[in-house]
Simulated assay, not measured.
Amino acid sequence: MSIAVLGAGAFGTALALSLAREGHEICIWARDAATVDAINSDRRAPRLPGIPLPEAISASTDIATVARAGTLLLAVPMQSLHAVLTRIESPLAGQRLVACCKGVDLQELTGPTGVIAHAKPQAIPAILTGPSFADDIARNLPTALTLACRDEAAGTALQQQLSTGALRLYRTTDTSGAELGGALKNVIAIACGACIGEGLGDSARAALMTRGFAEMTRLAAKLGARPETLAGLSGLGDLALTCTSELSRNYRFGLSLGKHERFDPSLTVEGVKTAEAVSRLAAKLGIELPICAMVHEVGGGGTSVSEAITYLLNRPLKEE
């Protein structure tokens, strides 16, 4: 079954490279004609400088044609996912739509598979998530990810189709757990970046990661996810990577907040919108997510990093 990628960002292009090395012909859809020309004519990806693209990868601005592939990797920002899907007139019946984005939709308050199910109810939704940087995948470095699909047969087929020599996929049917882990770890990464940027030290970061993981599992359990999913690659694994590396945009954004520096507004920081969406969701469900709430306040400019830290440190003492 053919594979296409919707979105010509770094991660989508890196996945295309990984699959092309295994002999797949991959077409990438991009909005920008200049990006398509760079891929087709110059054999380069604007978002992955210095890495040449093989002839097996092509690009097009015609989303209807690209979307005919049996497997679609949806490598677009979370808050753009619904709009991209609605651009496709076809119901995509029976096609496998694999979200490669992380977050919670601000309008629907659901993760990527929920957005897919709402926009294209006849398609088969799945999500590919876990600890990974686009540059590592593009350079064929060993990476392990979670492939979550409620349809077990489809999930097994996708695992076989998308795994490569360097990209190892672990399968689960727990889409809620997989997508919540990937979404919330971005929020906690912002908090950890702000902590280090403010000069509060590694011990404080370790505390934020641990209590942040508790918030991740609390929300996931409330929504019916399995605890073991959050303890795997899509939760704990991704949290460990994103909260400790400056290659993470969310962590770097947090660093800029802590250092009171300007952050490049052209870069998508999924954790900011996710913090807002998760704060709404927590209020709706009647649960407390104090770290996520403070990231929402700080990211929106309503609270300073020092005020947020003071609030967290002065919460009532409790059992772990």
Rank of each mutant, 00 (worst) to 15 (best):
P227F: 12
G199F: 03
L233Q: 13
E55D: 15
L97R: 04
E108W: 08
P91F: 11
P125R: 09
T35C: 01
R171C: 05
D238A: 05
S234T: 05
L267C: 03
A277G: 02
I3P: 00
A38K: 10
S203L: 10
R171S: 07
P46D: 08
R252L: 10
V269C: 10
A134S: 09
G181F: 00
A154D: 11
E25G: 08
T210A: 14
A45Q: 07
A144C: 14
R171V: 02
N314Y: 02
A308H: 08
S176F: 02
Q122R: 12
A126Y: 04
S279N: 02
S2E: 13
S2N: 15
G258T: 02
S18H: 06
A59M: 01
G9C: 13
I196N: 13
T110I: 04
L53G: 08
L313W: 04
I39G: 09
A14S: 15
L92D: 10
N186I: 01
G50H: 09
I26K: 01
A194F: 08
A221Q: 13
P142V: 10
I196D: 15
A283W: 00
D42C: 06
F253R: 04
L85V: 01
R44H: 03
S60D: 15
A4I: 04
A138G: 13
L48V: 12
V66M: 09
R43N: 00
A14P: 01
P121N: 02
T274P: 04
K273V: 00
A225M: 08
A14N: 10
A157E: 14
L255N: 14
D105R: 06
S80T: 04
T242E: 01
G155M: 13
N140E: 11
G201D: 03
L312S: 10
I188R: 01
S245L: 06
R226D: 14
L106G: 09
T65N: 10
E55L: 13
V272E: 12
R262V: 10
G114S: 12
L73G: 11
T71R: 10
A93L: 05
Q160W: 06
C27S: 15
T229Q: 06
G254P: 09
E246F: 06
A308F: 03
P52N: 07
A59W: 08
L145I: 09
A220T: 12
L145H: 09
E152F: 07
